[in-house]
Design a protein around this nucleic acid. Structure first.
Length: 332
DNA sequence: CGTGTTTGACCCGCGC
DNA sequence: GCGCGGGTCAAACACG
C-alpha cells in the first residue's frame, strides 16, 4: 500500500540525511563527524609534525571520540526505530478504521482449488501496479496458505511485491535490501517466464523464501512473492548508520525509490518487521531493538562493515601513513 | 579457495 | 496407481 511506502520512505530519508549531512548528536551539541570528515581530520593531523607519544595520544583520543559517536549513532537509530514503530502503529489504526473488513478473505477465496490458482498472476483483479510497484490483496495468499497447511508460523506470512523493471532486463532480481541466495529456477505451466527461488542468506537461520517471476500480462513487471518473516533486522538498519555513501548500501535502504543507484527499479519491502500487507496487522513477535541482543548485533555489524569498507580502510591507511611518514603524505 | 549461480534430478502433493 | 506440476536438492560451474 502506498501509505506503507510513504511511512517507510520518510524513515529512509532520515537515514539518508544521516548519511549525507553532519548531524547534531542526540545531545544536540556535538556534531557527528562523517567518515569524510574523519578522513580530513586524519590528514590534517598527519601533516603536522608531532612526537610519536603525542601521535599515540591523538590516536587514542580519536578512537575514543569515534566510540562515543558510535554510541550516539546507535542511540539515534534506536530513537528512529521507535519513531518508525509509532508511525507504523498510527498507520495501522488509520487503516483499520478505514477498511475494517479488508484482509479477511472470503471462504470462497480460501477454498479455491489449486487448479484455479494456475493463472494467479493475471486473474487476481485486486492486484494493481501502482507507480512501479504494488502489493497483492488477500485471496491468492490465502490460497497459498491452504496449499501447504502451515506447520510453522512463518508459513503464513506471505506478501507479494510488484516491481517495474526494464523489459530488456532478463535478471530476476528484486532489490529489497536483503541478501538472497538463489536455489532453484523453474518454468511453470501458466507462465512462459521462469520462476526463480531464493532463500534469505543474511542470517543462516532465516526462514524467509522469495519467488520471483515476470508477470504474464506485462513482462516488464517482476512479481516477487515473499514467504515467512525475517528473524533478523533489515541489513540497512545497520549499514545505513555507518554513513556509507556507497551505492550498494544506498540501494539496500528499504523503499529506496528516490536514492537507488541502479536505474528505475522501485522496490517496496513488505517483509520488514512491523510492516503490514492487505491492511491486516501482523501479529508476529517483533525484535526488541532496545534489547542487549539487538544492540550487540548492531555493534557486530558496525564493526564488520567498517572493516569491509574500502574507503574506511583507505582513510585509516592514510591516517596511519600520515603519522608514520608525514612527508610522504604531504608529497601526495 | 570460498561463495553464489545454474540446472537437471528428485520428491511430494494433487487430480483423475 | 499414474501422470503432472511445483518446489527443493545438490553437483557442476563461474567468478572474484
Amino acid at each position: 500500500m502506498a501509505m506503507d511506502s510513504s511511512t517507510c520512505l520518510d524513515t529512509s530519508l532520515s537515514l539518508f540525511d544521516l548519511n549525507m549531512n553532519p548531524l547534531l548528536c542526540s545531545d544536540g551539541n556535538h556534531p557527528v563527524t562523517t567518515k569524510k570528515e574523519l578522513r580530513s581530520d586524519f590528514i590534517d593531523v598527519g601533516t603536522t609534525m608531532i612526537s610519536p607519544k603525542e601521535q599515540a595520544d591523538v590516536l587514542v583520543e580519536e578512537l575514543n571520540r569515534m566510540v562515543e559517536e558510535n554510541k550516539k549513532l546507535s542511540e539515534m537509530l534506536m530513537v528512529m526505530c521507535e519513531n518508525y514503530n509509532t508511525l507504523q502503529n498510527h498507520l495501522m489504526d488509520l487503516m483499520s478504521t478505514k477498511n475494517p473488513n479488508k484482509g479477511s478473505p472470503s471462504a470462497a477465496a480460501i477454498s479455491k482449488k489449486r487448479k484455479a490458482a494456475g493463472s494467479e498472476d493475471n486473474t487476481n483483479n485486486n492486484d494493481r501496479v501502482i507507480g512501479g510497484y504494488a502489493e497483492s490483496s488477500s485471496s491468492e495468499e490465502a490460497d497459498w496458505c491452504n496449499k501447504k497447511p502451515s506447520t510453522e508460523e512463518s508459513k503464513s506470512k506471505i506478501s507479494r511485491v510488484y516491481v517495474q523493471t526494464e523489459p530488456s532486463d532478463n535478471r530476476l532480481v528484486v532489490k529489497d535490501g536483503y541478501q538472497w541466495r538463489k536455489y532453484g529456477q523453474k518454468v511453470t505451466r501458466d507462465n512462459p517466464s521462469p520462476r526463480a527461488y531464493f532463500k534469505c542468506s543474511f542470517a543462516p537461520t532465516c526462514p524467509v523464501k522469495k519467488k520471483v517471476q515476470r508477470s504474464v500480462e506485462d513482462q516488464s513487471v517482476l512479481v516477487a512473492t515473499y514467504e515467512g518473516e525475517h528473524n533478523h533486522p533489515h541489513p540497512s538498519q545497520t549499514e545505513a548508520i555507518l554513513g556509507s555513501n556507497r551505492g550498494a548500501t544506498l540501494g539496500s535502504v528499504p523503499c529506496s525509490a528516490s536514492i537507488s543507484s541502479s536505474g528505475p527499479t522501485i522496490t517496496l519491502d513488505l517483509t520488514q518487521r512491523g510492516t503490514t500487507t492487505h491492511g491486516v496487522k501482523r501479529s508476529s513477535p517483533e525484535i526488541d531493538q532496545s534489547s542487549p541482543v539487538f544492540q550487540q548485533f548492531l555493534i557486530e555489524q558496525m564493526a564488520s562493515n567498517l572493516s569491509k569498507d574500502p574507503s574506511f580502510k583507505s582513510a585509516l591507511a592514510a591516517a596511519i601513513s600520515g603519522r608514520i611518514f608525514p612527508h610522504s603524505l604531504v608529497n601526495k
